[in-house]
Amino acid sequence: MVEQEQRTGTSSTRMIATLGIAGLFSGLALVAVFLFTRPIIEANQAEALRRAVFQVLPGSSSFQTLEFSNDKLALLSVEQENNAPKSKNPQIYAGYSKSGKLLGFAIPGEEAGFQDKIKAIFGYDPQRRMLIGFEVLDSKETPGLGDKIIKDKYFRTSLTSLEIDPKIVAVKPGQKTAANQVETITGATISSKTVIRLLDKTIRRWLPSINIYLAKQ
C-alpha cells in the first residue's frame, strides 16, 4: 500500500481525511476554549466599563444603561442588560449618587486620531451643562507624543470642568480665555484636537435625546 502510494502519490481521499480530521479537532478545541473563556472576557469588559463610568462621573456609586432606540433614550431593564448577545444600539450610562440622585451621564464616543480611532468616555453634568470627567478607553497614539492625551495632567484637568456652550473649541497653549475652550498639547496637536472634536461631536449628537429623556423624568 505504502509502495503503491509512493508510486502514485497520496490519494486525495487520504489528504481530504487528514485535513478534515485536523479541522474537526481544531474546531472542537476552539469551541471548548471559547466557551470556557467567554464569561471571563465579558466580565473583564464589564469591569473596565464600570471603572471608566465611575471615573468620569465623580461621586457616583451606581449606574444604569440607557439605550437609544426608536428615536428616544430608554432605560434598559436588568434582564435586557444581562441578555446576550448585547444590543448593537448606541448606549450611554446614567450615574447616580448613594442617595439615588442623578449625577450625570457617561457617554462613550470615538474619532479618528493620528494613528487609529481614539475611543473615549466622558461625564456630562446636565444641570451645569458641563463635562466633568474624561477617560481614554482605547488609543494607539504615538507613545511619548500623541499619548499625552492620556498622560498630560493639565489637559485632562481642563476636561473635568468644561462648558459645552456655545461649542467646545480648541485653542493654542496659553490662549484660553473662556470656560468652553481647551488648550491643545504641544507635541500632540492632532491627538488633542481629535479629543476636543470627539467631545463636541458626541455631546451635540446626544444632547437632544438627553434633554427629552430628562424632561420626561
Binding site: L19, A22, S26, A29, L30, V33, T37, I40
Partner: peptide, 17 residues
C-alpha cells in the same frame, strides 16, 4: 491549522486572564 488553533487559544486565554 495546528498553529492557528494554538494561536487562537493563546488569544482567548490572554483576553481572559
Amino acid at each position: 491549522i495546528i498553529i492557528a488553533t494554538f494561536v487562537t487559544i493563546v488569544d482567548f486565554l490572554l483576553q481572559a486572564f
